[in-house]
């Protein structure tokens, strides 16, 4: 009886929770809605009419969408690969041995994601200036890698800590060198964590604006392009169509990452 009573959430709390969800998700719904509006110059509510022609317009007669899209995909892909390599190595190093200052170094790895993007952006911009590195696709990639490494590191380090250190020794004992041990023992154990970390990193990079603004030269990534489109009111719903596309492209990996890490915890627990 009492446990049942505890499970019933008070009405006030339920209303608050629903209000919170609406506050978070109504703007998203509006983005979807305005992708279908017939009014192209301003966001008028309610929309005077609904149409799917903007999807067609975006696909057929707006070539200016494609270069930013390709650039964003390219940046996100390379930043993710860099993050996978360096994030995994850092996690392996830091979870393997205990030494003085380990927690501090661990914090330093995580810091870029806690810092406001604007700080990271300014810092990188002045660093590139001092080193006279011209702004290019590669400076954008490096900028994105700073926070992409963090998500991969965070995912990998948690999995490494659960990895029984004896497994590595057992593998070596059975004749496997470091590379074979990594391939046959470590990678299968941390694989899902890396996949999840990589997908999160990709999603983060794909819609990043602030760091990109500071580290880009003439290049325009997709989010920057969208920002520019909102400023001049021409075929505004096309921007929303692209927003819907970005939403899907980033949501799917995040959902996948969520299920992958949950699955990993499940199998990790059952092997005990």
């Amino acid at each position: 009886m009492s446990s049942n009573a505890n499970r019933t959430t008070p009405l006030g709390l339920r209303i608050a929770a629903i209000a919170g969800l609406l506050f978070l998700h109504l703007p998203l719904a509006l983005i979807f809605l305005y992708a279908f509006t017939t009014e192209e110059k301003s966001f008028e509510f309610p929309p005077p009419g609904l149409t799917t022609k903007w999807f067609e317009t975006a696909w057929t007669s707006r070539p200016d969408i494609w270069p930013p899209l390709y650039l964003s995909l390219q940046v996100a892909a390379i930043a993710t690969v860099l993050a996978l390599i360096f994030g995994t190595l850092a996690a392996a190093a830091l979870s393997r041995t205990r030494f003085f200052g380990r927690e501090t170094i661990s914090l330093l790895f995580v810091l870029p994601i806690a810092l406001p993007g604007i700080i990271t952006g300014i810092a990188l911009r002045s660093a590139f200036d001092i080193m006279s590195i011209p702004f290019s696709v590669w400076t954008i990639i490096l900028g994105h890698a700073t926070f992409c490494i963090v998500v991969v590191y965070n995912n990998a380090v948690a999995r490494f800590r659960r990895l029984n250190g004896n497994l590595v020794e057992a593998s070596m004992d059975l004749g496997a060198n470091a590379f074979q041990t990594f391939r046959h023992v470590i990678l299968p154990q941390i694989g899902t964590a890396l996949l999840a970390g990589g997908m999160l990193a990709f999603a983060l990079s794909f819609d990043e604006v602030i760091v990109t603004t500071f580290t880009a030269g003439q290049q325009t990534t997709l989010p920057i392009w969208m920002l520019g489109e909102l400023i001049r009111p021409r075929q505004r719903p096309v921007t929303n169509v692209v927003a819907v596309f970005v939403f899907v492209v980033t949501l799917l990996p995040i959902l996948a990452a969520y299920y992958l890490t949950r699955e990993g915890e499940h199998t990790g627990g059952s092997s005990k």
Binding site: N164, N166, E169, A170, S171, S271
Partner: peptide
């Protein structure tokens, strides 16, 4: 080696 906790690959 036979490890104390067996260290079988899960």
């Amino acid at each position: 080696t036979v490890f104390q906790d067996y260290a079988l690959f899960p």
